[in-house]
Simulated assay, not measured.
Amino acid sequence: MLENLDFYNHNIIPVHIGGSEFYITTTIVNTWIIMAVLLGLALIVRILIHRFEEIPKGFQNVIELLVEVFYSFTATTMGENNKGFAPFYGSMFLFILLANLSGLVGLRPPTADLATTLALALITFFMIQGYGLRDKGIVNYVKGFFEPIPLLFPLNVIGELANPVSLSFRLFGNILGGTIIMALWYAMPWIPVKIGIPAFLHAYFDVFAGVLQTFIFVMLSMTFVSSAMDS
């Protein structure tokens, strides 16, 4: 059973830079695959966009529906004045969604790697600090850490630093947990348990949990950034 159990992030290709050895891992390769799919979709839309008609149908209908949903969701979560974030968060949503769903086609989800989820969470963290400084100014930004009373300064700093940790571990833990459970199930030596039941497990761990965790991650990121911009 143990020899059939595989949910690890493997080193695939060694890369030597300046006397140090690094590896292209399963996570990196699968991330490239997902990026290639998204890039291919973007190129197809770019090529076909001049053929789009005033009354959408077929493929155009799907693309316009996605765009409208992302803009509407962004306006609802971050406010009408921040609809410009829709392309960024729409791209993030699609990347995380495809990463979470990649287990359905036999890939190890990149979001089952803490490096991926932490990188995404750090983007949100630096956006929070950057937009907070821009909109509040350095004086009000620093002052916010001492409110409502100066004694809470250490807790406010810890709370700020905890945001990327909680964001990254929530997504990472849920996706890795599903990956481990599926690996354990497929490693079972009893053949009958591999018939039919894995489909229901994939429906929950890959589809339901994958979509839900994508929504939660993006929504929380939007909420944190919009809150930082509130004067």
Results as ranks from 00 to 15, higher is better:
residue 24 I to F: 08
residue 41 L to D: 14
residue 140 N to L: 09
residue 49 I to F: 12
residue 110 P to N: 06
residue 126 F to T: 02
residue 174 N to T: 11
residue 24 I to C: 05
residue 222 M to A: 10
residue 231 S to L: 13
residue 48 L to W: 04
residue 178 G to M: 10
residue 155 L to R: 03
residue 94 L to M: 14
residue 40 G to R: 13
residue 84 G to T: 06
residue 102 S to A: 08
residue 144 G to V: 07
residue 97 L to G: 08
residue 103 G to P: 01
residue 140 N to Y: 08
residue 112 A to N: 07
residue 164 P to Y: 00
residue 211 V to M: 11
residue 136 K to N: 14
residue 51 R to I: 13
residue 97 L to Q: 09
residue 107 L to A: 11
residue 163 N to Y: 04
residue 78 M to Q: 11
residue 140 N to E: 13
residue 40 G to T: 13
residue 93 F to N: 03
residue 58 G to M: 00
residue 224 F to V: 07
residue 200 F to Q: 03
residue 152 L to M: 14
residue 201 L to R: 09
residue 74 T to Y: 07
residue 205 F to I: 07
residue 171 L to C: 08
residue 42 A to H: 09
residue 170 R to M: 10
residue 21 E to N: 07
residue 84 G to K: 10
residue 92 M to D: 10
residue 70 F to R: 01
residue 188 M to K: 02
residue 101 L to W: 09
residue 5 L to V: 11
residue 71 Y to P: 11
residue 152 L to V: 11
residue 153 F to V: 01
residue 184 L to Y: 07
residue 156 N to A: 02
residue 209 A to P: 00
residue 88 F to Q: 06
residue 208 F to L: 14
residue 14 P to D: 13
residue 62 V to P: 12
residue 78 M to S: 14
residue 152 L to Y: 04
residue 151 L to T: 12
residue 209 A to M: 11
residue 204 Y to H: 09
residue 143 K to C: 01
residue 127 M to P: 01
residue 141 Y to R: 11
residue 143 K to G: 06
residue 51 R to A: 15
residue 62 V to Q: 13
residue 8 Y to L: 10
residue 138 I to N: 02
residue 146 F to E: 04
residue 119 A to C: 09
residue 203 A to G: 08
residue 43 L to Q: 14
residue 127 M to L: 13
residue 144 G to K: 03
residue 134 R to H: 07
residue 209 A to C: 10
residue 100 N to H: 09
residue 70 F to D: 09
residue 121 A to F: 06
residue 9 N to R: 05
residue 97 L to K: 06
residue 61 N to I: 00
residue 227 S to E: 15
residue 18 G to E: 13
residue 101 L to D: 08
residue 101 L to N: 08
residue 104 L to M: 04
residue 55 I to G: 06
residue 160 E to Q: 05
residue 130 G to Q: 00
residue 191 I to L: 04
residue 72 S to F: 10
residue 137 G to A: 12
residue 227 S to F: 05
residue 98 L to R: 03
residue 103 G to N: 07
residue 175 I to N: 06
residue 171 L to H: 12
residue 123 I to C: 13
residue 214 T to G: 13
residue 80 E to K: 05
residue 118 L to W: 00
residue 208 F to E: 01
residue 52 F to C: 10
residue 97 L to P: 01
residue 109 P to T: 15
residue 138 I to W: 10
residue 1 M to K: 03
residue 80 E to F: 03
residue 154 P to W: 00
residue 70 F to W: 07
residue 94 L to F: 11
